[in-house]
Design a protein around this nucleic acid. Structure first.
Lengths: 137, 137
DNA sequence: CTTTAAAACGTAATCATTATTATTTACAAA
DNA sequence: TTTGTAAATAATAATGATTACGTTTTAAAG
């Protein structure tokens, strides 16, 4: 997912184009990892002093709903990253910097046999640790 | 993990035996699924009117630390279940009633090859859906 | 029994998130 | 270009989960 695609989705669904939304998208476009609402707020503050929580949260949720962003819960805080659309995948997530690495292995095929009678709706597979550059520092 | 084991751990580590702790443990012993602090509070209230949050949360964390309970985050709330010690495992979790089913498949072996240079510290694999009895209702 | 360290109480604070109402703005149609 | 209107934002306030704190109570060891 890149900015043009994301802006295209917004337009197509009838949502308005605002500079704030563009800037939010550009933030996630440039970052390659999970970021919190607070991280985004800190990024936005210089350009928009006093920007409200509402704007941050509403847009994060909107983008999550539109699958422009994907989200996960890390230590009690929701974190978001730009969506890697196209194919099913999971992530390694660096505990220190939040950067992600795509994992192509999905365990669900091997598991379905164990779950006869259970209706599977969703699953979460995440690996946590330190990325190479955080190990070095 | 059963009550005797759990109480043994408490004793061995020098923590006191109280009726509240016994009741908390008996709650998780009888429930076979993830339960929230609120769930536990509701269970405790009749026997201990006005029991404080502090008692609930402190003991949940203590038991989590001692690996008497294990925890996961579901929809912004921490949930706890009695620990299935002994072997590594994952869980199917029913979104409706919180009951769990053990999954013996662990995807980590297949994944390590994809993560050269990344230091793996932890992982989470959970499957969400409806258990057979919740599907029926 | 007495001691004492831990547990529990009562309450307030904190942190993330959501809701509310009023104002402002993007955008399309006149 | 102007204007109407629905959407977006601001400025709080509220909520819900969790943690912190000073005091009192209690389990359990001597």
């Amino acid at each position: 997912m890149n900015m043009e695609e994301a802006l295209g989705i917004l337009k197509q669904k009838g949502y308005k184009y605002t500079k704030k939304r563009k800037d939010i998208l550009s933030y996630f476009d440039q970052e390659d990892g999970y970021r919190s609402a607070k991280d985004l707020l800190h990024f936005m503050e210089p350009a928009y002093p006093g920007i409200s929580f509402d704007t941050i949260y509403r847009n994060l949720h909107l983008f999550d709903e539109l699958a422009i962003l994907e989200s996960t819960e890390l230590e009690g805080e929701k974190h978001f990253r730009i969506s890697c659309v196209g194919h099913h995948h999971h992530h390694f997530i660096c505990k220190q910097c939040g950067i992600t690495k795509e994992i192509d292995t999905c365990p669900m095929d091997n598991v379905k046999g164990e779950l006869g009678g259970f209706q599977i709706e969703d699953h979460k597979f995440e690996i946590y640790g330190r990325c190479p550059s955080c190990q070095a520092s």
